[in-house]
Design a protein around this nucleic acid. Structure first.
Lengths: 335, 335
DNA sequence: TTGAAAGCGCTAACAA
DNA sequence: TTGTTAGCGCTTTCAA
């Protein structure tokens, strides 16, 4: 049985496709279709469960009512919550979400963006980009489609951003540690280091330390590779222990590092580090369950999703022409 | 500047749209286009960065190269990991993923399915359904599009399933607790109770207990509402404490309950329960970080995603006509 | 080995 | 208040 389409419905009702289309799209009044006819049409739509073919409609109108979301890892609860927030808001406005995970690989990100934009598959795009140069997104061909960058800032000539105050949050957190009496605060950073969130957090860390006039922060910063978190964290711990210059606190630049650190601290090998203070950027509910009291700054995750979808919708519908740059505040979570 | 389209490219090259289209779609050889011409066309495609309009193509071919994924909560890492696995596999095959979160609401689920299928927006659908009756999915109008049900079984006349062995895993876990000397094992179940995963886990729990001839399991089963997990868990604990009939172990039917329980056990109010054993269906890496040793059965989450996408693709491409029903084994994680 | 032309199902300008 | 008609940009049949 073939699917019912506009023409069939028109025949059944004895009206033209045009009229039916007008009514279905809520333009009945605008075109002066009589109330009676409108009701008749709407009833038939119900009765026969008619739904317009999405692609025909999109082809004709140039609007897909799809929005793309590109993040490094959709299984990361941080992005998961953002995705959920965005999806829910968009769905209620008649938009659907296409999700892509880049695994932090630049080529995949570019490929995904081109696919979505060039094929004109989406009306707008929300991206947590792993790129740190303006050239890619600054291309003219992308100017057609509204984009909102979240979480991470990409240096660009134009472009809207919804990000957290990584710099400020970092300062707050490190100052808190200092105030609590920590003298040597090591920093476990995640690569690639050039991603704006990490850069800003590092910047905040340096600033807070220098401000206090303590030892050169650079010797305390240790990079951890995205693909080898556990291994690298342990390597650094081993190094500290061996050289007998262990810090009294670790500041982890993201959750995954904090988790790896906490895990490692359970090892006999690192028993001497049992009392170090652990701090982390971005909070997790599970930290409440641990005996080790982890200090964090939490990000307004859902707010990022909400702002991004609201902004993008305004851009898509033309309500907003200019770019917006929102920096959301963090909250210190002492424990 | 308008986007380049087939016609423009054809003019530039002095060939017809037909020929270009044939070559781009890899049918050059089939139609006997000379190698030289093919190379020429492909070069131009590169050079001008031409990409066919997705909607025109879909309208014409009837294939969208979109796959839908519907789950109750995309921010739940369990579904997040499934989504990521599916997305990655599909992307490599030229498909894109549309994600929807139902919040466990039946109406939203139905609405989403109808949207995706009726509008012919997706070539296939992967669903973790919250429905427990066959009528909705058994409708003829849905027969056109391949569907793979994951995680939860929906009673249907036909339909493919990729699920975990919830019944067997539950038995294994409870037997393990019994073997370890636990006598009174309370069961914290999540509502709605009719969802197949929960039903099966409950069934396994009952079976394991009855088999050992201990007291009536029904008195030990406590329902926890999806929307009020923390509150309900605490209510039950309070109840047990007040009546001085606390169990020596809690079996949580999912992760979220386990987390709520662990959180609650930190409260002074429940200090008397400090030594209860905690067990949970579905493992979490964070359990490694806790002092309380949580026993679990872990599910092959990525395998669910892999099997589901592979199966769906085979159904979409017609490689597979019949339905498949896969039950994946669980693994006991002692701690 | 290549091209002309029809048509996928819809919307909207224009006509009536 | 309603209908006719021309495309949206592509693929594919059929003809050359």
């Amino acid at each position: 049985m073939k699917k019912l389409q506009l023409e069939d419905l028109a025949k059944k009702l004895g009206y033209s496709k045009t009229l039916i289309s007008m009514v279905i799209n809520g333009k009945g009044n605008h075109y002066g279709v009589s109330k009676k006819t409108q009701a008749l049409v709407l009833d038939a739509v119900q009765q026969y469960d008619y739904r317009p073919n999405k692609f025909a409609k999109s082809l004709r109108t140039g609007k897909s009512h799809f929005v793309g979301l590109i993040v490094s890892d959709i299984s990361n609860p941080f992005y998961g919550l953002i995705a959920k927030t965005i999806e829910t808001l968009l769905f209620n406005k008649g938009y659907n979400l296409m999700v892509c995970s880049t695994e932090e690989e630049e080529d995949r990100e570019k490929q995904m963006v081109e696919m979505m934009l060039e094929q004109q598959a989406v009306d707008g795009l929300i991206i947590a980009s792993a790129l740190n140069k303006p050239d890619f997104y600054d291309q003219d061909k992308f100017a057609r489609v509204p984009m909102v960058f979240i979480d991470r800032v990409v240096p660009m000539h134009k472009g809207s951003f919804i990000v957290t105050d990584n710099y400020g949050g970092s300062i707050t957190l490190v100052r808190h540690l200092l105030r609590e009496g920590n003298k040597r605060i090591a920093c476990l950073a995640i690569t690639p280091l050039f991603i704006s969130t990490i850069e800003d957090r590092l910047h905040g860390y340096r600033e807070a330390l220098l401000h206090e006039g303590v030892e050169d922060p650079e010797t305390l910063i240790r990079p951890v590779r995205f693909e080898k978190i556990d291994k690298d964290v342990q390597k650094h711990l081993r190094d500290f222990v061996k050289n007998k210059n262990a810090p009294d606190a670790f500041y982890c630049l993201n959750n995954n590092i904090a988790l790896a650190l906490l895990q490692a601290l359970h090892k006999k090998e690192f028993a001497s580090l049992a009392n170090v203070r652990v701090a982390s950027f971005d909070d997790l509910p599970l930290f409440d369950l641990l005996d080790k009291k982890v200090v964090t700054v939490s990000q307004p995750v859902e707010e990022i999703g909400r702002s991004a979808s609201a902004l993008l919708l305004d851009m898509i519908t033309g309500k907003r022409k200019d770019h917006a740059n929102v920096v959301l505040p963090t909250r210190l979570v002492k424990r």
